[in-house]
Write a protein that binds this DNA or RNA. Structure first.
Ligand SMILES: [Zn+2]
Length: 418
DNA sequence: TCGTTTTGACCGGAG
DNA sequence: TCTCCGGTCAAAACG
């Protein structure tokens, strides 16, 4: 039954575009946004093989809850609901960047859609970590430019997506998961599983608020399919200790594709966390589900942008929502070498553990992080942010974009200069 | 008939 | 070595 997992797979993706051969470690703060990288790709696609944890708390209550958790307010989840329309003001967190996401997007779509590109000129201060208020519009259409613009499409209500990323350099983590992306989404109660608005750092400011009404209207259901454009088959579900939400395990249904993901959903069906492991060894299936022209357009774009990777990913990246982030580095993302580019020595070298698929290591390791704040419960509360890490030492980024180095600094706790 | 979901059992890493 | 627990397997159920 096609019902749950996935989107229809209609085409066998073929054209491999040449992926930029890069393998280097690079971390960048906000700038990531500036690139025309698609967020979805980061999360779900092959290009960023790694483990990705995505916490989704869609705006309202979920989000607030998480905030509560983080803040230690002790408020039981789901109890406190914050009106979506209200700007969520997280506890003292430094403002981070926002993405404006069209209301109609489901989480998956978010993932799929082009997100990270945008106003190119915003550069956060590398040292201070302060980032000019940035807003990113989340558009279905992958068009470039859109700074500050809230949304063009009528179809989409505006809701902001904040994303803050931070690079972590934890060697350990890196081993298993070369790159990690974390982002957290809070989902709104009212909405079913689908996530219409994703907001990772809920800092309110920046003037972005999700428009509840529009929001509501344009909500697209993610339903069973985690709409990241790939087809998934659920192969297990388990109640994980420390989490009140059951975790579901999915595999990509594409033959021989090692990509896996695990999804936690709250009782009301909202996705609270998604972790991707590995990468797809195929292009994203042309989805039929996206009916809207715009959507299709976006998908196309995505494909174009993402070179099919043949590689086998070993990496997994985690992306999680952001509730709070470190103010210091707001958004820096480091990408693992492998993923970005398909060929990574890493995978080839085999040095690391990449489980190609094999009966993988049981635990998808990630997030021991330093970053996490431990919650009273047991679960580590992670700071919301998006982190892509790369292992390589190389500074060269060959992601197809041009980068200008504007600073270098030795960061405490990290042996490698940033 | 077939693909997916459900779900208890099993495996194996970690402590 | 034992226990805990996350991840996977696989049979049965489902659509
Ligand atoms: Zn796949």
């Amino acid at each position: 039954m096609p019902s749950s997992s996935g989107s229809l797979e209609t085409s066998a993706n073929s054209h491999p575009t040449a992926p930029p051969p890069t393998s280097s470690t690079f971390s960048f703060s906000k700038p990531f946004m500036n690139t025309s990288t698609y967020f979805s790709d980061l999360l779900a696609s092959d290009h960023y093989p790694a483990t990705t944890t995505t916490k989704a708390a869609v705006v309202s209550h979920g989000f607030s809850d998480r905030v509560a958790e983080r803040t230690g307010s002790g408020i039981p989840k789901f109890k406190s609901i914050q009106p979506p329309s209200l700007p969520i003001s997280p506890p003292a967190v430094s403002p981070s960047s926002y993405f404006s996401i069209p209301a109609g997007l489901s989480l998956a779509e978010l993932l799929d859609s082009p997100v990270l590109h945008s106003a190119s000129d915003i550069l956060p201060s590398p040292t201070t970590g302060t980032i000019p208020a940035q807003s990113f519009n989340w558009k279905r259409n992958s068009n470039n430019d859109q700074q500050g613009v809230k949304q063009e499409d009528n179809n989409y209500s505006d809701f902001s997506f904040q994303l803050q990323s931070q690079t972590t350099t934890n060697p350990t983590e890196q081993e298993a998961w070369n790159s990690m992306v974390k982002s957290e989404f809070t989902s709104m109660q009212a909405f079913s599983p689908e996530i219409s608005s994703i907001r990772t750092n809920s800092q309110s400011n920046n003037g972005f608020q999700s428009d509840y009404n529009n929001y509501n209207q344009s909500v697209i259901r993610e339903q069973k399919k985690s709409d990241d454009g790939y087809n998934w088959r659920k192969y297990g579900q388990k109640q994980v200790k420390g989490s009140e939400n059951p975790r579901s395990y999915y595999k990509c249904t594409f033959p021989n594709c090692p990509m896996k993901k695990k999804v936690e959903r709250s009782f009301d069906g909202q996705i609270t966390e998604i972790v991707y492991k590995g990468s797809h060894n195929h292009l994203k299936p042309q989805s039929t589900r996206r009916s809207s022209s715009s959507s299709s357009a976006s998908s196309q774009v995505i494909q174009a942008c993402n070179p099919p990777t043949n590689e086998i990913p070993n990496q997994s990246y985690a992306s999680r929502g952001i509730g709070q982030m470190d103010s210091a580095e707001n958004s820096s993302i480091s990408l693992g070498d492998d993923d970005f580019e398909q060929s990574s020595h890493k995978t080839k070298s085999g040095g690391d553990d990449f489980d190609e698929d094999e009966p993988d290591a049981k635990r998808w390791k990630m997030e021991p992080e330093n970053e996490g704040i431990s919650a009273p419960g047991n679960r580590t509360v992670r700071e919301p942010r998006v982190v892509l890490q790369t292992r390589s030492d190389i500074d060269i980024l060959d992601d197809g974009y041009r980068w200008r180095k504007y600073g270098q600094k030795v960061v405490k706790g990290n042996p490698n200069p940033r």
